[in-house]
């Protein structure tokens, strides 16, 4: 399974990288008054500066990897729209996680996203009697609205860009989720994110507060035998920009601990993001999710590819 997924990702990456140079130096043309298609495509104004749309996080929203940011995904300015898709693969010692999704940014104000997470239990599935490579699938539908501030332009102010959002998550195999102690197979996270680019220091910082019941991002359901109410959780990122197309950073995210069968830990990562152009970016990370059910120290590689219009 893991090999298939890696091979597929490699194939997709290779083909996209092959396309990338064709995009790389296509200076955007002035909006044409020609066909309907031309007019439609001019909505994708590609007007934001490189990297200022962030990348696609684990849950499909514009952000880092673990943290959802206040930035609107994509490269549409307040006069345009941006559309992107992502593929992310996480190889942990005893599990693997694959997410794919699409997101649209409208007028640099509203973001709508969808992601599908597939969590492969590999050998643990067999040990738990579920069967080897037993998979949990989760859909995440997200919406985010920028409330105030501009992370990039407001360099003369301490005010960050602030956005609020919600993510509705639904996971399958509800009977199994109930068996491990989860109260529900679906739930909604609410968050407020504050993001600021400290341009003078070439540093991007995000702080996000999330109200959630999700166990392991929702892969193990919502609420639990230990706790079935919303928890206030923190997620944050800091990234240093080494150049216009390359950033190194770290992230931290706290998670609820609702299930009696296993202690859930906080997560962190260190990442490198490379923005080949406004259409293709690649993020590599070393990710630590801590304990997941019967296995401790689930740390491994995170590889994400984002492509966009």
């Amino acid at each position: 399974m893991r090999i298939d997924v890696l091979a597929a990702l490699a194939a997709v990456s290779t083909s996209l990288l092959a396309i990338a140079p064709a995009f790389a130096d296509d200076a955007p043309q002035p909006a044409s008054s020609g066909s309907v298609i031309d007019q439609g495509m001019s909505m994708f104004d590609d007007g934001k500066l490189l990297a200022t749309g962030g990348v696609s996080d684990l849950e499909g929203a514009g952000g880092g990897g673990l943290a959802t940011w206040a930035l609107t995904t994509g490269y549409g300015t307040r006069d345009g729209v941006g559309l992107d898709g992502h593929f992310t693969y996480i190889a942990l010692p005893d599990y693997s996680l694959w997410t794919e999704g699409v997101a649209v940014g409208l007028w640099d104000r509203v973001e709508l996203s969808y992601a599908h997470l597939t969590f492969d239990t590999e050998k643990v599935g067999a040990a738990l009697g579920l069967g080897k490579d037993f998979e949990f699938d989760q859909d995440v539908v997200g919406a985010k609205v920028k409330i105030v501030g501009d992370a990039i332009y407001d360099q003369d102010s301490w005010l960050p860009q602030i956005a609020v959002g919600a993510q509705y998550k639904s996971t399958d195999h509800v009977d199994i989720l109930h068996a491990v102690g989860a109260k529900s197979g679906d739930g909604t996270d609410f968050y407020v994110a504050a993001t600021k680019l400290f341009l003078e220091e070439s540093l991007l910082v995000d702080v996000t507060l999330r109200e959630t019941k999700a166990n392991q991002f929702g892969i193990l359901g919502f609420g639990g035998d230990k706790n079935d109410s919303y928890s206030s959780e923190f997620e944050g990122s800091a990234a240093y920009l080494f150049s216009r197309d390359f950033a190194l950073g770290g992230e931290f995210r706290t998670k609820p601990d609702n299930l009696g069968i296993a202690k859930e830990n906080d997560a962190w990562d260190v990442f490198a993001a490379y923005f080949i152009n406004k259409h293709v970016s690649v993020t590599l990370a070393y990710l630590n999710l801590g304990n997941i059910v019967i296995k401790d120290n689930q740390q491994g590689a995170y590889l994400s590819l984002q492509v966009g219009l």
């Binding site: 990039i152 332009y153 360099q155 003369d156 341009l199 003078e200 070439s202 080494f242 216009r244």
Partner: peptide, 13 residues
Amino acid sequence: FATQNRLLARLAP
């Protein structure tokens, strides 16, 4: 790049 950003930070507003 870092020096460029110090200038751009003052121009951005």
